[in-house]
Amino acid sequence: MTVSPSIPTFPGRILEVTLPAGPGGSPVVVGGQNALPLLPEGDHPHAPAVGMEIRTGPEELPPALAEVIGPFSGNPAALAQKCVSGWGARFLFLSLSGCNPDAGGQGVQDGAAIVREVLAATATPVIVGGCGDEDVDGRLFPAVAEAATRPVFLSYAEEKNYRLVAGAALAYGHGVVSWSPIDINIAKQINLLLADLGFPGERVLIDPLTGGLGYGLEYTYSIVERVRLAGLSGDAMLARPILCHLGDAWKAREASDASEPGWGDSALRGRRWEEATGLACLAAGADLLVCRHPENVKRLSEAAWR
């Protein structure tokens, strides 16, 4: 008996995007596929890539994270090296959270200096994130764009600031991450605006905003699926690699609370919480995952097949 499976074919193809590395490092290339994720059909020239987040600001880490990345607190360059050579991160997301006025007052130039230090410490591709304060980020992104000694990605460009971020990126040859708040229309709109500025599509990633497991993950899941289906169906503005931040998973009480005896070991549970968030993102179509627990670089890479 022969079975003819129904394999959908798509007219579109996701744009291939390269996150450049420094001398001796391996660039990360994602995109290029014309099929849905995880399935043995169509072309999948590149597997999804798993990277790690480095935050420069002070923060109270959940115990499962404190144990492993706590010792590197205040030393982003050392953590960057460890992430890459010790834990296998294929890229780094350097979040300049320390420049937020609420976070203890690193100045814009301090942030730019940290970027230089991290770039000097490792040859791996880097995405630089702002601090979340609109005013500061307005000064921070141009400073980072100028200070970076090799091409990076700036995260993120949204409707309010895209001219500034894209302008800074264009001037110094960087890429940008386009951000939208779990909304496919805004995701498309911001990519249209970037294209109108003449920003090259092969230097743009889509960050659809990732809710953590149990706290809005289902919205992200469906937006990622819809963005991917739209891109494969021929919508060029959405045919871009998708980046998902798993950091929100750690904000869930379930990821850290050790006081519930029926919930099992909190250290394992925290890791699993981030892992399950990441696996759902991969199933929906994410191309880049930013995780926080070193073990999850390995775990999620297990499912990041082509």
């Binding site: 379930e254 099992g264 394992l268």
Partner: peptide, 29 residues
């Protein structure tokens, strides 16, 4: 992955709540 992609029934050997609370939450989502 099977909760996301079309698994109707999953038999598992683990009874560790640290495994199942995340999986059941993913399913609920």
């Amino acid at each position: 992955l099977l909760i996301a992609k079309y698994g109707s029934l999953l038999v598992m050997d683990t009874a560790d709540p640290a495994d199942l609370l995340p999986l059941l939450t993913l399913r609920q989502n």
